[in-house]
Amino acid sequence: MLIEAAKDVLGQGGPDASLEAVARKAGVGIGTLYRNFPDRESLFHAVFSRELELLAEQAERIQSTNDPVGALRGWLHDNVAIVETKRGMLGALSVVLSEETKKSFAEKSGRISTALNVLLTRAAEAGQMREGVTADDVLQTMYALCYAREPGPDWRPQVLKLLDIFIDGLAR
């Protein structure tokens, strides 16, 4: 409950967002928030870690789909929502990460890359997607499209439109 509320509030307000607003949104007192997350950075890291875990689980679920183009499109659209949240938290996420946090993020990122590579390889072998495309190619393109645009009310629809064009170019 706290992490979901933090995702919403911190994603919109960034590093300066009120932790009191997070507690209110979660329906708890500020003391409860601080008992679970002693500082703003630990809350930001918990939100980002949860989002990465959900992306990794989803990537692992879709790797054996019969509709790889649709599955990749849906996964990338979900990823854009996480980038949108992360953009709002960049100041806090840029603090020095502990070795344990770096290891956790790297493990989840590795799971994502592995699952996407399986999906892309299977799709290429079935003639549904272009051959030779890797998870790195897809992720770099997605992040480039996300960060090429300034945040604003039209940011997400514009990024999703460009991602759809990219995915359509991968499909056969």
Results as ranks from 00 to 15, higher is better:
E20S: 15
E20I: 13
A21R: 13
V22D: 06
A23M: 07
R24N: 12
K25G: 02
K25Q: 13
K25L: 11
A26Q: 00
A26P: 03
A26N: 04
V28A: 10
V28S: 06
V28E: 07
V28N: 07
G29Q: 11
G29R: 12
G29H: 13
G29Y: 07
I30C: 03
I30K: 15
I30E: 09
G31Q: 14
G31A: 15
L33M: 09
L33R: 10
Y34N: 04
R35I: 01
R35P: 00
R35N: 15
N36Q: 13
N36P: 04
N36S: 12
N36R: 14
F37Q: 06
F37E: 02
P38T: 10
D39Y: 12
D39T: 07
D39E: 10
R40E: 07
R40P: 12
R40N: 08
E41H: 14
S42I: 08
S42K: 15
S42T: 15
F44H: 14
F44G: 05
F44A: 14
F44M: 04
H45T: 02
V47W: 09
F48I: 02
F48C: 03
F48H: 10
R50C: 01
E51Y: 04
E51D: 15
E51W: 01
L52Y: 13
E53M: 05
E53P: 00
E53R: 12
E53A: 13
E53C: 01
L55S: 11
L55W: 01
L55Q: 12
A56W: 01
A56G: 02
E57P: 00
E57Y: 01
Q58Y: 11
Q58I: 01
E60L: 00
R61N: 04
R61Q: 14
I62D: 00
Q63E: 10
S64M: 05
S64R: 10
S64I: 02
S64A: 11
T65Q: 09
T65R: 08
N66Q: 13
